[in-house]
Design a protein around this nucleic acid. Sequence first.
DNA 1: TCTGAAACGCACTGCCC
DNA 2: GGGCAGTGCGTTTCAGA
Lengths: 154, 154
Amino acid sequence: MIEKLDDIDLTILRILQKDSKKTTKEIASTLNMTISPIYERIKRLENDGYIKKYVAVLDKKLLNYPVTAICLVSLRYHNEGFIDKFEQQIQELPEVQECFHMAGKVDFFLKINMKSLDDYHDFVRLKLSNISNIGVLESYFVLKEIKHTSEYKI
Amino acid sequence: MIEKLDDIDLTILRILQKDSKKTTKEIASTLNMTISPIYERIKRLENDGYIKKYVAVLDKKLLNYPVTAICLVSLRYHNEGFIDKFEQQIQELPEVQECFHMAGKVDFFLKINMKSLDDYHDFVRLKLSNISNIGVLESYFVLKEIKHTSEYKI
DNA sequence: TCTGAAACGCACTGCCC
DNA sequence: GGGCAGTGCGTTTCAGA
């Protein structure tokens, strides 16, 4: 039973998508409320699916993933079976952090993290190119990450 | 003092980037260790910057952000001042979830979440276009999000 | 739906090996 | 660097309004 969110719910979501370690007590304090209602609202937001999960955000550079590539893929054949299969194969590649099916000339848009350009070369040659049905494949490299957040403007 | 990570550290990071609500006790249990060393390792990973932050991941659709656009921007002038200013202005736009400075013909790559195509139209017209120095601006829309994770393959 | 209080478990500290 | 025990705090539950 999913109902509309009020301002209190939105404030809770705003706080937690910035810092999920904030305690119920702290959130209650900023909202001038007691712990119980905040606690129940958070549980409701989790159960209703507004909060999907809680994750630790790691440092790409320190983990030695300095190379980020944007990869544009166009398929050769566009019937349902081929698209589904491509999507399924992409899911299983841990190097691929994001993949979107696009409207327009380019079919898929991929964001890929690698340890080196050599690794990227191997990745394209051994993994991506082995996915049959890829027609055109264009790669672009990120010089600098200006902004990267999981937050939504709520 | 940042030292190299061993397998235990990497396992901890793997677990926490999937689910940061896992307790120290649970992590210790899967690693057949006691709580203390796991606790200390997590603190070290936080202090050394391997773990940047903990966040709640929200549901875009439930929050009524069904439109995701990829926006490619080329600047008119490419001297340092103009680029810095552009980057600074982008930082302040909450609709922009990701922005990368690219190598190649396209200067910047933006990922933008909106409530509707009308809102996107307004966003481009009122906010992006008002940033002086934008030369070319191309928009592509996401039909379907195949994969979107903050995890790294560690 | 909020308040307040009580119970539980985990985070955190200090000491030992 | 890892194990063990104690304390405080946050989470969780529940009676009442």
